[in-house]
Design a protein around this nucleic acid. Sequence first.
DNA 1: CCTTGTGAAGGCGTTCACAGCT
DNA 2: AGCTGTGAACGCCTTCACAAGG
Lengths: 268, 268
Amino acid sequence: MATGRTHRPATRSRGIPEATVARLPLYLRALTALSERSVPTVSSEELAAAAGVNSAKLRKDFSYLGSYGTRGVGYDVEYLVYQISRELGLTQDWPVVIVGIGNLGAALANYGGFASRGFRVAALIDADPAMAGKPVAGMAVRHTDELEKIIDDNGVSIGVIATPAGAAQQVCDRLVAAGVTSILNFAPTVLSVPDGVDVRKVDLSIELQILAFHEQRKAGEGAVDGESPAEGAVGVEGPAAKVTKPAAQSAEKNRKGPDGDVPAVMPA
Amino acid sequence: MATGRTHRPATRSRGIPEATVARLPLYLRALTALSERSVPTVSSEELAAAAGVNSAKLRKDFSYLGSYGTRGVGYDVEYLVYQISRELGLTQDWPVVIVGIGNLGAALANYGGFASRGFRVAALIDADPAMAGKPVAGMAVRHTDELEKIIDDNGVSIGVIATPAGAAQQVCDRLVAAGVTSILNFAPTVLSVPDGVDVRKVDLSIELQILAFHEQRKAGEGAVDGESPAEGAVGVEGPAAKVTKPAAQSAEKNRKGPDGDVPAVMPA
DNA sequence: CCTTGTGAAGGCGTTCACAGCT
DNA sequence: AGCTGTGAACGCCTTCACAAGG
């Protein structure tokens, strides 16, 4: 339909699993910290603890990259830093543009973590003429009119969208038309892009909502009505964990609206 | 060990799968948009398109919540908005504190998506005495010394950490000690927390690194050496897709460092 | 007809546990 | 003896495809 969603049926690629790719930056960060402390080698156990994953997973992840460890010893920190950097494509320089220089865009522009890892902010772009020329993070903001030229001149292939939701799709289209093939989207919108363009989304309020879900469960602890007094503890990093807690409506699973209207008050 | 990681062996909870919980906010947003346009009902197909997922997944997700649709018709928008809101715990008010009012913290404080969904920013907290009292997002910044009191007075159970990496664990410990049980962490650090505390992480630079990985693959298109000319296109939303592209070192999988040293230059 | 709700199948990712090197 | 690398088992999530119900 309207959206340009793809599907790519797995492609059996001789490649690295997506879940592994998503963890490589984590390992890299932990390794960089070790490197700065001049630690020469680490075991999978130590590195896993530093990265916040379990060691079996880490070893499996590394096994997709090749055999970079030494049995009985561990991994050479510097060597691994390089291998992971190379795998992620961080040994080359990636010019990026940030579009939408509001609070968030400015925060991103100032964020050290970008520049430190092969990413170079080629330009800050905003639609507000009043912003044009103003310095943000030591850089003059450029106007949206120049977007295509900036991308072309700098060979930008990665764009960051930090505009309001309403402008995001339009900006996205222009970025794509100008040659950008990877987009990091901070606007709360579903972007549609043609095949070949990669979109990742960071949504601040979604994360909070997920927390609220779990928080809600913690609150109703053994209150509602018994099932088992069991657990109720969480304690996780990434995808967060499950919680016990009988859902207030679990006993009778199926039931349409008790009265069909749209409630206006909170549940007791 | 040092870290407070847990494991919770699945708990067979009569609950909603984590993957589903993570998508509920997406559905909610799409539904809210429909609601504002006074659309009375949607089919799973339409709603799925608006949320950027496929319809089978959406129906399966909703089936965990109960039978809220009407066969042959679809879902009642208003009713579904309420049900999902309730499930996520958004029908109640969640006071949150934001700690670390730098660029990012200020951006978060100004972010409309928070306030609009049951989240209320109870306080902005910063360690810099010079910041104390300064207005950000129409609110006077409070000093870290007051952290415990603020949390206690407002019954805050959700905290947002937007401090530099070095301060994050310390802030986290204080938040937890003061009674916070859910933390959204923007600092690039692995936080360790006791059981029962939920941590979610948002890492700006990790997302970019994942994009760079895929971007790198696109660049080396059919260059290296043939396998199948096949695809090479991506085009995804969340977890990003796979790409074909024969890895430059795939033929001979295992091989230690070609010469053992730590390379200082980029690969040709 | 229509669209939901859901068993069943399949795929992916994680974890286990041990074989294989150093 | 120690730690990596990995086949195999397991569990979660997604997808399919159709029965159930409007």
